[in-house]
Design a protein around this nucleic acid. Structure first.
Lengths: 422, 422
DNA sequence: CTGAAAGCGCTAACAA
DNA sequence: TTGTTAGCGCTTTCAG
């Protein structure tokens, strides 16, 4: 590692020119076998590893694709517990049996709190070195599946990684937000052949800027108006299908009183999903004539404004419970987090779900598979999002002049116990 | 995107030299504000993005860290369902209610089968376009948390990503195995300032080769003998602590008949864990005198050879059930997969766990949190593994001549229902 | 089949 | 404060 050997070193060592060294590495068949072997030997004994930078510069191709994610600002993973690292032999026993206190609930502040708790707890363990059976749930929870948004990224990342690998590209991942974002984005953009950017991560002008240099595909952002390639999921159709089901359009239309827990007003996802919800309601209302004949009235809709957070959902749920109005028959939420919050509130007040009221989400996060009751939702194909993104870039790379691509990935409605069976 | 502008273009446009352009980007304070503004304007209007390759070449620093993972050979994720992509409005309703058929069990072949099933199923949906309620569990399962090994990587990846981000590095991820491995590794090694490699991924000589160019840290590999930095987890202490608990050393030593389901013989993890197990057994046996006084005999140990797979565990479990010998009081498995397989076998034969026999695993994979009964295990700090790896590289970067680092991360014993409470 | 030489785009002395 | 000028290590014609 003193001074990395270069083509020149290898060439000298093997008694050939640098061009030959390069050939041996790039097109081995263009070199006489003996020469090749000699060069390869030199490579070996010198410990030569070609410089990717030089290669990229000379060859104007990197063999690398980029994925840009939102920064991890709020994440605040607990630090590795250095006290324990110092003495790894102290193994805590953690009681993770059922019946332990429910995991904390908020999203934003929760993480920080949990992290703090974990640290405190770990220190307690380290210092006291007693009470090995201490309930360390706080340590347990936050280390793994705490922040669902992350799981989302994880899946996209994984999909992109797999597909890149298949296509013979390496994947460069970067994250940024705030001021670090612009720097990072430029940095990464200068080192890759194409870039996938998760929506809401980067302002439009920056994207436009970067896309003048390399192909950029935008993930999960329905906003139109740019010339970039887009890969998204069908929020509208998904929510429409789910709402259709909830309203029981093909089941007799028995549900006529429903609440929509919305997301933040500036979210394209919220807009699309809300539209899908409205479409389903309109359709159901149009069917009112028929429904009325069966003894049902028009669909009554109320909207609670949420913010995609579990806490926001909980507030909405509390509001519904506290309201003088009777509970609706169903609460359709703009995302899973909100829905879980609503469930929290209902559970806290002993509201029977789905007996008294149905609750649905959107996203398909893991937590919804393990809530009580398990959450009916629409699952997004996160993995495919990453994979198709990579494909799109590769396609674009081969045909830079093709018109902008707009891929919409299908979603699936997942029926689980938070909705009554039919 | 026609022809990416360079420093020269910007310099010309702004009426300055290329050095000034470079300065504006690297050390803005060294440039007179007016000049800076002028250059920045040119950058903007030209759509200039500096070439990372050229920068890396000239500056001999990439600002990128590498993470090398095992290839995804066996993974075989189902392809995105292109039929449905073409018509995203067809939204399938999937019945994911409890009581659906148990997920398939094997690890290796399972994935492929499930994928095939998913495809078949999806096509069926597409063609028939009826029977929206078709049980599509096959589609459901494999898309998400199918392969636990992946979750493992995901967490490491995530940890590395977060930490890299904090340190101002981008992270380059590559995977390889077989022949693609060498190429990929060299490729990535030439583009990063330091590299973390997951154990068992790369043969030692290749690692040695690469490490002559950049710092390399090896993850989760206890093999000694090289001069590289290592970050691992304390397999031995973890298994010892767990086995201590199982044998009830501090609970009266009531368990005297135990089976160890081993992993593959060439795995360092298996070796370390096995050692921990043996240590605990020896300790318990040493305590026999005391135990005997309480009416207990020496510890009886049997070993079943597994292979870290669920199927291997199942076979071991079947063997135990079929054996003329009585069931042991506890089955300690070298990893979670094996333990889940043992559970499968026991459940299939109506063996009461933990009533009749206790079962434990090692790793802390998600599936163990949701098995029946939930699995007592040792959790590895995957996330920290990634994070500490990055820290280690950064440390090494600042002091290349420091002696090789050996970090061992602590583990935690997670007590869950597959072991009797005490 | 092999070698010579011209860049690729940028950074970092060193001058001015 | 700004400009000039070497490289950084490799790929790639174009000759030989």
């Amino acid at each position: 590692m003193t001074k990395a050997p270069t083509v020149y070193d290898v060439a000298a060592h093997a008694g050939v020119s640098i061009a030959t060294v390069s050939r041996v590495l790039r097109r081995p068949d263009d070199v006489r076998p003996e020469t090749r072997a000699r060069v390869l030997d030199s490579v070996r004994s010198l410990g030569y590893v070609p410089s990717g930078a030089a290669r990229g510069l000379a060859g104007r191709r990197h063999g690398v694709l980029g994925l840009f994610l939102p920064g991890h600002d709020g994440i605040d993973l607990p630090e590795p517990d250095w006290e324990r690292v110092a003495d790894a032999s102290r193994i805590p026993l953690i009681d993770d049996r059922e019946g332990r206190p429910a995991p904390p609930a908020t999203t934003g502040t929760e993480t920080a709190n949990a992290a703090a708790a974990a640290t405190a707890n770990a220190n307690a363990n380290a210092n006291a070195n007693a009470n090995a059976n201490a309930n360390a749930t706080a340590t347990d929870a936050p280390r793994s599946a705490s922040n669902p948004a992350n799981l989302y990224f994880d899946e996209v990342l994984r999909g992109a990684e797999v597909e890149s690998w298949r296509r013979g590209f390496a994947l460069m991942v970067a994250a940024g937000r705030g001021s670090s974002r612009e720097v990072m984005l430029n940095d990464i953009a200068g080192r890759v052949d194409g870039l996938a950017v998760l929506a809401q991560t980067v302002p439009d002008d920056l994207l436009a800027h970067v896309s003048r240099r390399i192909p950029v595909v935008v993930l999960a952002d329905s906003r139109p108006g740019d010339e970039l390639d887009h890969v998204g999921v069908d929020n509208t159709a998904g929510m429409r299908a789910l709402t259709d089901f909830v309203l029981g359009r093909d089941g007799g239309g028995r549900v006529r009183d429903v609440v929509y827990v919305a997301g933040p007003g500036d979210s394209p996802d919220e807009a699309d999903r809300h539209r899908g919800f409205d479409e389903a309601v309109v359709a159901a209302t149009a069917a009112t004539a028929a429904a009325t004949r069966q003894g049902h009235g028009p669909v009554r809709v109320r909207v609670e404004r949420g913010d995609f957070s579990r806490e926001g959902g909980r507030r909405a749920g509390e509001a519904l419970v506290a309201s003088p109005d009777p509970l609706p028959q169903a609460v359709v939420c703009a995302n899973d987090q909100s829905a879980l919050g609503v469930l929290d509130a209902f559970v806290a007040h002993g509201v029977d779900v789905p007996g008294r009221v149905a609750v649905t989400g959107f996203d398909g996060i893991e937590a919804g598979r393990f809530s009580t009751p398990r959450l009916t939702t629409v699952r997004q194909p996160m993995n495919d999002l990453g994979r198709v993104a990579v494909r799109t870039i590769v396609t674009r790379l081969t045909d830079p002049s093709a018109p902008p691509l707009r891929v919409t990935l299908p979603v699936e409605v997942l029926l689980r116990e938070s909705c009554p069976a039919r």
